[in-house]
Write a protein that binds this DNA or RNA. Structure first.
Length: 424
RNA sequence: GUGGAUGUAGCUCAAUUGGCGGAGCACUGGGUUGUGGCCCCAGAGGUCGAGGGUUCAAGUCCCUUCAUCCACCCCA
């Protein structure tokens, strides 16, 4: 067989995250973890592979995610598996399977990891993308909604992502939503001619989504349509009112928008989205809502819940636009002249690294000039110069790069000089 | 899934009617004894996204394909 030279590439919509970018990822993750832990949420990690039926049941067969965006596989025994397209259904599966409901009355969980959807790639939309997913399981009251929303806002604001808009709506509950849905269907039946093809299809299967349509003709046709905010039952109205009051008291700005709908069927009552103007069409940085029926739908106990997901790629785009990275800690470069000095420099470098001081030296043999250039490129704060003279005297030359000042330092004093006296 | 734009050095981009593939930045070395940034000199770096076709001749024209980007759609 003839060897074929193939150019290997990553799969469409799947991306490498390189060292130049990784500082943003680390900062997003570590800051989010800190805030989440402070608010009592605990991390869990779950497989990327699940039974496909979980999402069909959880998210809904009619949704775009399930009907056309799932990565489906058959395993060797013919079971239908998929790469997880979202986290909530999966967390709920783990919650039920591991009987978390018996361990504690309320579970506050978060998961950070990749999700997979087979969509047309675009900036801010990838086939493998990452989410920080947060769920508060087991409480029905508006305080949970407020806790979740305030937490989300604190994470996004604390990271500094520029102007963000929080939009909230209530989708109603199992009592009032069915009424609204049938009213709306009836209304849309008369307007059918005026709707775009997509909406004609939606008007029967998923009529709420017509409110999302940006087509001018559809917007016009919705003139005089039943409004979801007029169909809320008393409980839904009170619930939303309580949340909005708590948000106002917390100083969190929001927009109440009765056209906000969500693409996953499990949402009840509270639905929300955080958008930016800085990212073009893929403008939702985070989204979520309440899912009071999902756990029982998936075979678990009756546990009303609420959660959200932050899109990490989109969040990072905003971090890049809005904030320069913090400078790293001090760095040291060791320049050496001659073989003996190089061996000495190596041992010294490893000693400094053992004390967690970022230290580098030249790998090959090169002139001092060249080594100084390397030190500049590396952005070293200090350069240690070691040649025969220093070896003889038992010292190193310590150069402070900003000022250019140079002093001879005894080896025994060096660590103290670089790290400071407080370090043991 | 639909429509459109773009693929040339690591990055940002040039290349006339089809006629020897370039610049800036970055990289490597040097500018005489052991000193960086600025400056100067030199070097290295390209299957011109991939495959086919037209032509004496293709980065340039045609077809196919892959990828990226934008909008729709969808969502985080």
């Amino acid at each position: 067989m003839v060897e074929e030279t193939v150019e290997f590439r990553s799969v469409r919509g799947f991306h490498d995250i390189l060292p130049e970018e990784i500082a943003y990822w680390q900062r997003l993750e570590s800051f989010s973890r800190r805030i989440l832990e402070a608010h009592g949420f605990k991390e869990l990690r779950l497989p990327v592979l699940e039974m496909a039926s979980l999402f069909k049941r959880g998210i809904g067969e009619e949704t775009d995610i399930v009907s056309k965006e799932m990565y489906l596989f058959s395993d060797p025994k013919g079971r239908e598996l998929c790469l997880r397209p979202e986290a909530t259904s999966q967390i709920v599966r783990a919650y039920i399977q591991n009987r978390m409901d018996l361990k504690e009355p309320i579970s506050k969980l978060y998961l950070i990891g990749p999700m997979f959807r087979h969509e047309r790639p675009q900036k801010g939309r990838y086939r493998q993308f990452h989410q920080i997913d947060v769920e508060l399981i087991g409480d029905r009251g508006p305080i949970s909604d407020a806790e979740i929303l305030i937490l989300l806002w604190r994470i996004l604001q604390g990271l500094g992502m520029g102007d963000l808009v929080l939009t909230i709506n209530s989708l109603g509950c199992e009592v009032c939503r069915p009424h609204f849905k049938s009213h709306l269907k009836e209304f849309l039946r008369d307007k059918r001619e005026g709707l775009c093809p997509d909406c004609q299809r939606r008007s029967e299967k998923n009529p709420l989504r017509v409110f999302d349509c940006k087509e001018a003709q559809c917007k016009a046709s919705l003139e005089g349509a039943p409004r979801i905010d007029e169909s809320w039952c008393g409980d839904c109205t009170d619930h939303l009112r309580a949340i909005l009051d708590l948000l106002s008291e917390a100083g969190i700005p929001y927009i109440l928008d009765s056209r906000l709908m969500r693409g996953l069927d499990y949402y009840t009552r509270t639905a929300f989205e955080v958008k930016t103007k800085a990212l073009g069409a893929q403008d939702a940085v985070a989204g979520g809502g309440r899912y009071d029926r999902l756990i029982s739908t998936l075979g678990g106990p009756d546990r009303p819940s609420i959660g959200f997901a932050i899109g990490m790629e989109r969040a990072i785009e905003l971090l890049k636009l809005n904030e320069a990275l913090r400078p790293e800690g001090p760095k040291v470069f060791i320049a050496s002249l001659g073989f003996r000095a190089r061996l000495f420099a190596f041992k010294l470098m490893m000693e400094l690294r053992a004390r967690e001081l970022k230290t580098e030296m030249a790998y090959g043999e090169s002139s001092l000039k060249s080594q100084m250039r390397q030190a500049t490129r590396y952005r070293a704060e200090y350069v240690l110069i070691i040649g025969d003279e220093e070896l003889e005297a038992g010292t190193v030359t310590l150069k402070e790069m900003n000022s250019g000042e140079q002093t001879q330092v005894k080896i025994s004093d060096l660590i103290r000089r670089l790290i400071g006296p407080k370090t043991p």
